[in-house]
Simulated assay, not measured.
Amino acid sequence: MTTLSSKNIKQLKKASHNLNPIFQVGKNGVTDNFIEQINDVLEKRELLKISVLQNCLEDKEDIAKTVSEATDSNVVSIIGNTIILYRESNTNKKIELS
């Protein structure tokens, strides 16, 4: 996991503005299959949003920490019930951090 500077975070927030959440965390919480799917999408897109539903029993900060550690990604931001994650892709580099 690389460390993001405040400039990088600002750039990634701007890039994520038009993205829609791809995943939703509900009452089942974070599962192994969920982590596996996030890994695949991070490799393809580098940046994604996860929506935490109202019926989720876990805290959104805990979910963000769990997912980022399991996928070796960075939590860019948590806005409301939306988590923004970033991980540099090995094969599909799309975002160039300044």
Rank of each mutant, 00 (worst) to 15 (best):
M1A: 06
T2Y: 13
T2H: 06
T3E: 02
T3D: 06
T3N: 08
L4S: 01
L4G: 00
S5I: 08
S5H: 05
S6P: 00
K7V: 14
K7N: 08
N8E: 14
K10Y: 07
K10W: 00
L12C: 04
L12D: 03
K13V: 09
K14S: 14
K14F: 14
A15C: 07
S16W: 09
H17T: 05
H17A: 14
H17M: 03
L19G: 02
L19N: 01
N20R: 03
N20I: 12
N20V: 10
N20M: 12
P21I: 02
P21D: 07
P21R: 01
P21S: 11
I22H: 06
F23S: 08
Q24T: 15
G26R: 03
G26T: 09
K27V: 01
G29Y: 04
G29P: 00
G29E: 08
V30F: 04
T31N: 10
T31D: 11
N33M: 08
N33D: 12
F34E: 04
F34A: 06
I35E: 05
I35W: 01
I35P: 02
Q37Y: 02
Q37H: 08
I38R: 05
N39E: 06
N39M: 04
N39W: 04
V41H: 13
V41Q: 02
V41W: 03
V41D: 07
L42F: 00
L42K: 05
L42E: 09
E43Y: 00
E43A: 00
R45M: 11
E46M: 04
L47V: 04
L47M: 04
L48M: 13
K49Q: 14
K49V: 11
K49I: 10
K49P: 08
K49L: 08
S51H: 13
V52N: 01
V52P: 10
L53I: 02
C56K: 06
C56T: 13
L57C: 10
L57I: 13
K60Y: 06
K60A: 11
D62A: 09
D62V: 09
I63Y: 01
A64H: 01
A64S: 14
A64N: 12
K65S: 11
K65A: 15
T66K: 15
V67I: 15
V67Y: 05
V67K: 04
V67N: 05
V67M: 06
T71D: 12
S73A: 15
N74T: 10
N74Y: 08
V75I: 15
V76F: 06
V76T: 12
V76M: 10
S77R: 02
I78T: 10
I79M: 14
G80C: 13
N81D: 12
T82M: 08
T82H: 09
T82N: 09
T82Q: 13
I83N: 02
Y86H: 00
R87L: 13
R87W: 07
E88C: 07
S89G: 05
S89T: 00
S89L: 03
T91P: 00
N92I: 11
N92R: 11
N92E: 14
K93G: 11
K94S: 14
I95M: 14
L97R: 00
L97E: 03
L97W: 03
L97A: 01
S98I: 12
S98G: 12
S98N: 15
